[in-house]
């Protein structure tokens, strides 16, 4: 079978390796070209253009889609990220605590909120909490609710990321800080955490991208016209105009943010790789 066998390689009756590779590549290209042709032939381009690329509808969306919808999406995302980061930091420190109950609590929190769909959390905040605690008002109205719901979900992931980052800082750093007279808390705050954040900046940015997309779930909280973000805004306009162009435009607005962010993450990862070397 193998070329390195002890016996002289038998004269293959079938195909040579070179020939096989050529055939395989040829087949893959054939399938690809066939699929493109089939799509081009079967698709009703006129209707698709009509449905998704109505320039006058697209034009009518501006500037609201940016000044209102994208602005709200960014606002929801950033507030959720801030809440998630603060809560995640606390949970990560609890997870690393020497006090047992803190570790257990943090572990339970992480397991629960990593396991539940974000949608369920939104419904919980939007419906269940007002029913269970009538009269309670979450500060900031819709913005507060979104920040809380997104923050609760993000905190579970961020806690694990932050914990891993803290543990990735070499032990000698804590020893050096302690031997200089830093208390454990102060060493953590001035020496360990700043280094941990350098390590976890790429995964944290990824989390920001995920939150950006999850902010669309605010749809299920019921929002006023002024509080609409990209998805809700696109959907509303799509049903108003009976056309899908707004969906396409809203989608492009998401990509406007997520693609550059992804680029930044890859840059940071490449830089971190360099630093290790």
């Amino acid at each position: 079978m193998t070329d390195t066998g002890l016996d002289a390689p038998p004269r293959r009756k079938g195909l040579t390796r070179r020939r096989k590779r050529g055939l395989s590549r040829g087949a893959q290209y054939t399938v690809f070209v066939a699929a493109v042709i089939a799509l081009a032939v079967t698709a009703d381009w006129g209707r698709l253009g009509n449905q998704f690329a109505q320039t006058d509808i697209a034009r009518r969306m501006f500037p609201d889609v940016i000044t209102l919808a994208l602005k709200n999406t960014v606002l929801f995302t950033v507030s959720g990220f801030v809440v998630g980061l603060a809560l995640g930091m606390v949970i990560a420190l609890m997870r690393l605590s020497s006090v047992g109950p803190y570790r257990w609590l943090a572990g339970i929190y992480i397991e629960i909120f990593r396991g539940l769909p974000a949608l369920l959390i939104f419904i919980f905040i939007g419906v269940a909490v007002p029913l269970a605690f009538p009269g309670t008002e979450i500060v900031g109205g819709t913005y507060g609710k979104v920040a809380l719901a997104l923050g609760l979900v993000a905190a579970a992931y961020m806690a694990e990321t932050i914990r891993a980052g803290i543990q990735a800082v070499p032990r000698g750093q804590m020893e050096a800080a302690r031997s200089l007279g830093f208390s454990p808390a102060r060493a953590m705050a001035s020496v360990i955490v700043p280094q941990a954040f350098r390590i976890i900046l790429p995964p944290l940015t990824n989390e920001l991208v995920l939150l950006f997309k999850d902010s669309s779930l605010v749809l299920f909280l019921g929002v006023t016209l002024e509080e609409r973000e990209l998805s809700k805004y696109g959907r509303d306009l799509a049903s108003q105009t009976a056309n899908s162009t707004p969906i396409l435009v809203a989608g492009l607005c998401y990509l406007l943010i997520t693609i550059p962010l992804g680029f930044v993450v890859r840059r940071m990862e490449a830089k971190a790789q360099e630093a290790v070397r």
Binding site: E175, S179, F182, Q195
Partner: peptide
């Protein structure tokens, strides 16, 4: 521990700070 200086085999400088900051941070915080 403030009265006891310690020097490690692996140096253990704070890599995210400049040389001067490595010297000033402990003085200021501790």
């Amino acid at each position: 521990r403030r009265r006891i200086g310690m020097v490690f085999q692996q140096f253990n400088l704070f890599p995210h700070l400049t040389v001067t900051e490595n010297l000033t941070l402990p003085q200021r915080r501790v």
